[in-house]
Amino acid sequence: MKFTLVILGAPYSDSASQSALAFAQAALDDGHSIHRLFFYANGVYNASRLAAPPQDEHDLPASWTQLIKQHQLDAVVCIAAALRRGVIDATEAKRYQKDSNNIAEGFELSGLGQLIEASAASDRLLTFGP
């Protein structure tokens, strides 16, 4: 089966990110494929590489980055939701004259069209809400 997961919760705020990560891992372990991870609403905060949780806590954003890298997953962060929340890549930082960017490796800013395309291309669409 081909899955698309929509993640709407921020790490360390609610459980959406943690549950989605565990689901994604289980689906991949079971031989399924993930067509796209779509980070939307507060879920965009999962894509910040500047999160610095204490050492005795699970580093959720790092775990996402690792999973994405390991399985070469397509991880899209909704650009409109991200920019208004301060999650930004180098191109957008330049466009909006910001002094820095923070998007983690493996994530890509793009439009809501990527969610719509993913839903059309996937067998199953799951939302992980806050």
Partner: peptide
């Protein structure tokens, strides 16, 4: 919360892509 607004934005995007 922003959820209702972001839901509508997703619907508008789907419609714009003629889904």
């Amino acid at each position: 919360t922003a959820i209702a607004r972001e839901a509508l934005e997703a619907v508008l995007a789907a419609a714009a892509f003629e889904q």
